[in-house]
Design a protein around this nucleic acid. Structure first.
Lengths: 335, 335
DNA sequence: TTGAAAGCGCTACCAC
DNA sequence: GTGGTAGCGCTTTCAA
């Protein structure tokens, strides 16, 4: 039993209803609403009044169907509250706006489940997808069938999707070189933890440390939060009291380190030099300002959007070599 | 002269093309793509192959037209990089996701021009609008004709639009009371500047100060940035060297104050107590942690979405009294 | 200035 | 299991 007109659920007002109510044809309504010239002033007013009275709003689907001129892309972010992703999102938004595109933002809360749900729903809502995904490529491909996809921050390029790779090798090398030149011989790293394998950022650190002839195994895992950074610093200093410099997986962790160092009575950078990774704007707000192996997040977003544009129009996509953002050491008070 | 098939611009592949290519009808294509049961496995595969070969992707407009079940709202934010708006945006996204809605995010870069452009374009892309607008109501109404609109953070409710009001009166009163109880008699405020009239937050401060019998005119304008906060603190201390406590327009400014105080050799909270406004998560990252008259940004976002939902379904909208988020004093290391 | 008709690309509801 | 037909709500020809 389906009673069609229960309370609430006001049936959609269409252009037809407005036409009837104003005593004109649908085309005339369309003319009035779209500010066309070929319409009498009084008729137009009458139509507009009727439309308002009925609470009419044109269907964006019907309209989009007939004049297909809008591009909408989906931006998938693990956590908008994480400043790094905020910066990437802002950059992508800006680049998209420059092209007149619309961006639907999805925050997957860093959960695979949400990621899947987003993928399900996204394919019928956007023309292309940009963002971060942790799920396997097979699954990704399954849900995005044929839709252009650009992954951000993948460690390696993949065969099936375009991706923007982050290359921090030189930057991390420069960071370690700087610390060594400043006289540090025991440099610790606070890697992220929780995943099984060590991060690629740790690999960069290891390579750099080895090439400078210093220990590369003074590493402790940290939760990716300021609190996590603080706790990890304590653990690190407990295990290796002779450490005088720290490189961290990212800036958030580094900020926790700065805070914890102060609480421990260690002054930065005299007693402890700190270099983060990401180059967040946030790093300038703390005291001392955070040195960091910095990523150009705007370039990250712009590149992703550029590649999507090419994929969408069928133009030659950018080659892998061009889809790279290199991190650069940016010195500041903390080192 | 219209040459229809210039290079680039690949004409849209429709379900019809796929049907022809696979030698089936359009309905069968539809069935294959939508995972319906009533289709032979091999047929399905053939259709899927054809679709992929042709690079077919269903039109979201056509699809949306026929099964109108998706709600998309536009979220308009002045600056996504501003942590406060980031928090509001994240909250709105979360609330929208809980309802299965899509959210198109527009960053107006705090420019009236962009705001207008966004408004122009938004009306044909979303079912409702939530967010911040600085343009006059007339203009707003012009562009949003009939579309539900919920304004956030307006100082007063308006007749024409729903709005979520922020009420910091009690919170600011509590902040001043706390400072007075701690023995402070000269409390400065760093207001935002750039606008003509003093902010409503300043009014709250004034009221609270007067009611505690202390000067309410120790006020300096600050740019809404950490640097602005630092500069304003210097100006404030220069003009009023006896100030021992500062209340700021927002947390960003307060964080600049914290940093500047350290540089000036003033320890917080001993030499200078600091209380911000907003209650950003960011406040917990600095040292000492920032005391603040805190807003529940999640409630802000959730309320806005809730009201949009009511407007959209025709349910009874929330009354003005329910569309308020009250700020509460949250003490921390800085005060 | 206005109206009739066609069709955008897709899915739902029937027949077969 | 598959195909025809009829729309979804709108704008764009083209006639009147």
């Amino acid at each position: 039993m389906v009673s069609s007109s229960v309370s609430g659920e006001p049936r959609k007002v269409t252009i037809h209803d407005v036409a009837r109510s104003a005593g004109v044809s649908r085309q005339t309504v369309s003319r009035a609403l779209n500010d066309k010239d070929e319409i009498d002033g009084s008729t137009k007013q009458r139509v507009l009044d009727a439309a308002r009275a009925l609470g009419y709003r044109p269907s964006r689907f019907a309209r989009g169907l007939v004049r297909q001129d809008t591009t909408t892309i989906g931006l998938v972010i693990p956590d908008l509250l994480n400043p790094f992703f905020t910066e990437v999102a802002a950059a992508a938004l800006e680049a998209a706006r420059a092209r007149g595109w619309h961006v639907v933002v999805y925050d997957t809360a860093d959960r695979a489940e949400e990621e899947r749900g987003t993928l399900q729903v996204i394919s019928s809502q956007v023309d292309a997808v940009v963002g971060y995904f942790s799920c396997p490529e097979d699954e990704l491909q399954l849900f995005t069938r044929g839709m252009p996809v650009v992954l951000i921050g993948r460690e390696h390029h993949t065969a099936r999707f375009s991706s923007i790779r982050i290359d921090g090798e030189e930057g991390v090398h420069a960071a370690v070189a700087h610390l060594v030149a400043a006289g540090h011989t025991r440099i610790g790293m606070l890697d992220h933890h929780g995943r099984v394998d060590p991060s690629i950022r740790r690999e960069w650190f290891t390579t750099a440390a080895v090439s400078h002839g210093i220990d590369a195994d003074v590493v402790v895992g940290a939760d990716q939060s300021a609190d996590g950074g603080g706790a990890a610093l304590r653990a690190l200093l407990y295990a290796h009291p002779d450490v005088t410099a720290v490189f961290t997986f990212n800036d958030i962790i580094a900020i926790g380190v700065l805070r914890e160092a102060r609480r421990l009575g260690r002054s930065v950078p005299q007693d402890l030099a700190v270099i983060g990774f990401d180059g967040l704007q946030l790093g300038a707000l703390v005291e001392p300002p955070l040195a960091s192996v910095a990523l150009d997040t705007r370039k990250l977003g712009a590149l992703a959007i550029e590649q999507v544009a090419r994929l969408l129009t069928g133009a030659d996509p950018l080659a892998e070599d061009d889809l790279v953002v290199r991190a650069e050491l940016r010195l500041a008070g903390s080192a």
